[in-house]
């Protein structure tokens, strides 16, 4: 398969940045999107040109590193799929694809398609953990967790922190990410002790990082590679009201 790529190239945060056009030729339909970029980069390197910088790590859809905008869709057009798990057979032969980095004030650009997502780390550091001493691994079922809560917590815990929610949101809001992290812990007994502090601190850090507010448009949920539901955002709003009343 052949593709025309319109790729955002930018040396560093201070550079102006511009689109460059590349041809991806003889790409196997079985190649993943990142493998297609590897092929293009090999050719660029052979010609003595700078390869396109993109973030990646696990290449199996679990680390959240590989996010980019592919023709206006976060992680490309397929639902519930990371860029590394997206295959070229999902595109039309000869298609022109526009590749852009996540655009958000809180995610400063590092190079080309790579952005700095450490704002998410700061939010996690503000409360996305459990600091009670849990001792040895407890016996199974020693700590009762209602089945429904276990399911909802597990759904929220599927978040890989890739930033697609921020990228897709017209307001570059991080509410889906924060709500997944808050929900995951608030629904479990282990997370209950720090529930109030966690919610307040994570929301405060989110706001300070310069993310936008949530307009409930639902674009985040549609683009999330882990299909995290915006019902988590409703829960975060509830948790926040509760935390404000109890603090």
């Amino acid at each position: 398969m052949n593709f025309t790529l319109n790729v955002w190239r930018q040396k560093n945060a201070n550079d102006q940045g511009r689109f460059e056009t590349y041809q991806a030729k003889n790409i196997s339909p079985e190649a993943s999107f990142l493998e297609m970029l590897d092929v293009v980069n090999n050719e660029l390197e052979a010609e003595g040109k700078e390869p396109i910088a993109f973030d990646h790590d696990c290449r199996e859809g679990i680390c959240g590193a590989c996010g980019m905008m592919i023709s206006g869709r976060a992680h490309g057009p397929r639902a519930a799929t990371t860029t590394c798990q997206l295959y070229m057979r999902n595109f039309q032969d000869g298609e022109t694809l526009t590749l852009e980095p996540w655009r958000a004030k809180a995610f400063p650009l590092v190079r080309d398609l790579v952005v700095d997502r450490s704002a998410f780390d700061r939010i996690i550091q503000a409360g996305g953990f459990i600091s009670v001493n849990t001792g040895n691994a407890a016996d199974a079922n020693a700590l009762p967790v209602p089945k429904d809560n276990a399911e909802l917590a597990m759904d929220a815990a599927a978040c890989i922190g890739c930033g697609a929610c921020v990228a897709a949101c017209k307001n570059a809001s991080a509410m889906l990410f924060v709500s997944a992290k808050v929900s995951h812990l608030a629904l479990l007994p282990q997370g209950d002790a720090e529930r109030v502090r966690r919610t307040l601190n994570m929301v405060k850090t989110m706001d300070e990082a310069g993310f936008g507010n949530c307009s409930n448009t639902g674009a985040c949920e549609a683009e999330c590679p882990k299909s995290i539901s915006i019902s988590n955002i409703a829960r975060l709003n509830r948790e926040y009201a509760r935390a404000k009343l109890l603090s």
């Binding site: 206006g72 852009e100 655009r103 809180a106 995610f107 017209k170 936008g212 307009s215 683009e223």
Partner: peptide
Amino acid sequence: NQTARGAQGYADNSKNQ
């Protein structure tokens, strides 16, 4: 919300879900 996107917006903004 409008400043949160940053100075550079998306070139392809037509497929917001």
